[in-house]
Design a protein around this nucleic acid. Structure first.
Lengths: 337, 337
DNA sequence: CAAATGGGACCCCTTCCTACG
DNA sequence: ACGTAGGAAGGGGTCCCATTT
């Protein structure tokens, strides 16, 4: 190029051995002077590796998905991968195939499918998936076909939350779930169901309210459940936002928490400890989840061995119960009616 | 390749005119059969255009940045651009240069610098900026050098919030700001100051508390301000999370909102209408902000004319005051939203 | 001289291979 | 033989230009 040679430069840039020290130093200086930076695009083309990952997400409206994305980005960066981000906020059926194809055309080396699992699935069609040879790691969903899935253990989350409420002396525990089309919502429901079965509850349908993740539906849920079950004295709420709605409604109706009514949420938003009363909740470490997904994906990519992933792996990350005031009856210092 | 010709294929793929209908149809069929998709990388290399934008963000912990990113992604997608995402959560000085260089090496056509403005800046060094010829649009920051900036009008947000509190009959209004190193925090403070000056307040330093955006600091801020100013009867809080902390503290101290104390927040989180009482707040349409940034950036890119951007443009997006109960003294009609 | 096609250089790197000291 | 440097061939497209009817 400028100083001395042509693709000795390449050797210098990639730290290859066979360049004499002085040449190397020389080239480096010229590079610096020129502010030269290698064209990654061209490199990718010739090397056949892009060091790029595709991430398909479902909007960043909620705290969880945002944290997951943060975890993904941080880890990818750490491992030397760039992220191409695509968001699918709406359910435009079949559209998902398009996204996958596009990402594939961009030569990403792997894809993280961070769209929450749905019953009436928003999945890429099998046809496209089979045509694509790119590794895909799925996040927070069921593990249907042979595929690698990384999930929060929502079921056990539901279980420990409900169990905790019983332990605190509450007797009849309802649940406000997320939309039942969501896999995560269902898993949390199943966890709750398990406890209820152990406690020999039958006929529990009236204890279930399907919310929509928004605070407003928690409010409605509380009213509905309480009117159907006057003796209801606690609810496991499937996320913290709806929990806020529940607190709101209880407050309006003069039902004091946690004395008369217990609540455990799910997520552990940063502000959950500042609700009134501070919310007990199941904490998901979403960043860790995202990081784990990347780790798995990169492992897969690096294991050049084209061992197709029949592994049908499922990696579960355990949530943790955070106990605050909304579910702890004895000696509750608050109570401001 | 397979069927008939070589880069007549190129013409077909790019919908060029000079291909006979039957050839076109033929080629299309073969493409479909083969499941062929053009290698975007190679195309970029030869076309010299990548249709890719780099986005540098500052973590997705808060609702605002997440919404901005959503807005960016949606708009970019709409305009046919992909997004390469980089997150800088920590202040590793000089590190930002690295990010910029990396993005430049990846041949992005433009960059959105979505790191909030700081006094002790986390900016790319001037050196690097000058070396780079890529268009950069900055988000939510001051407009120092000649550069294109898209911002929320934080100052007017602070102004209308404070003014509203006075109008509601509160007499002495404090402020809980964000960290004073943040440009946004300062702007909101300036808006508040303007109103205070108009109302002939002097000696207002004791009415200012510097929070850290977290709920916990709102709690502390309330206590501090209230103890310094027993007659304080309202606060403009620079975000909704800290507002929650304020509500929390007021509640604990038995100070009723809005009767004895008024609060206006900033952001309009989805759950703000479910605080107790529902929070009045300054709503920022962050998605719109993100979309606007992309629009500007793409305009700049497309205006191939290498007219350097001495424009020193500043695009302000106006926030909107949402009045709920936390700031409305007289018999409030109860309605959320 | 239209419209439809193919030839070849080129984008910017990397890698293999050869030639030099 | 050995360490070092350069030549040439792609990688998968696009574009300009020449060629065919």
């Amino acid at each position: 190029m400028a100083g001395v040679s042509t693709q000795t430069v390449s050797r210098v840039i990639n730290d290859r051995p066979d360049v004499s020290p002085q040449t190397r130093a020389n080239v480096k200086k010229v590079i610096l002077d020129l502010g030269y930076s290698p064209n990654t695009i061209a490199r990718s083309l010739s090397r056949g590796r892009t060091n790029t990952l595709g991430v398909v997400g479902f909007g960043l409206k909620y705290f969880g998905p945002s944290s997951v994305l943060t975890g993904i980005e941080r880890k990818a960066n750490e491992l030397g991968f760039s992220i191409i981000l695509t968001l699918c906020e709406q359910f435009e059926g079949g559209d998902t195939d398009q996204v996958l194809l596009q990402l594939s055309a961009q030569q990403v080396e792997g894809i993280i499918w961070a769209i929450p699992g749905f019953i009436d699935s928003l999945d890429p069609s099998r046809m496209v998936k089979e045509k694509l040879t790119i590794p895909i790691v799925y996040l927070n969903r069921d593990c249907l076909n042979s595929s690698v899935v990384v999930s929060m253990d929502n079921r056990s989350g539901g279980y420990i939350a409900t169990e905790h409420l019983f332990e605190q002396g509450y007797h009849k525990i309802g649940i406000i779930t997320g939309p039942k089309t969501w896999w995560e919502a269902n898993e949390r429901l199943i966890g709750w169901r398990e406890v209820m079965r152990e406690k020999n509850f039958t006929d529990i349908d009236d204890l279930i309210f399907e919310g929509n993740w928004e605070a407003e539906s928690g409010d409605r849920g509380f009213q509905t459940l309480k009117s159907k079950n006057p003796d209801l004295d606690a609810i496991f709420v499937s996320n913290d936002q709806m929990s806020l709605g529940v607190i709101h409604a209880a407050n309006r109706m003069g039902i004091s928490i946690p004395d008369k009514f217990g609540i455990v949420g799910f997520d552990d938003l940063p502000e959950s400890s500042f609700y009134i009363p501070p919310l007990s909740t199941v904490k998901q470490d979403a960043k860790k989840l995202g990081a784990l997904a990347v780790t798995r994906l990169v492992e897969w990519i690096e294991s050049e061995s084209d061992q197709e992933c029949d592994t049908q792996e499922k990696n579960l990350v355990s949530p943790e119960l955070i106990i605050r005031q909304s579910s702890v009856r004895e000696k509750a210092l608050i109570s401001h009616t």
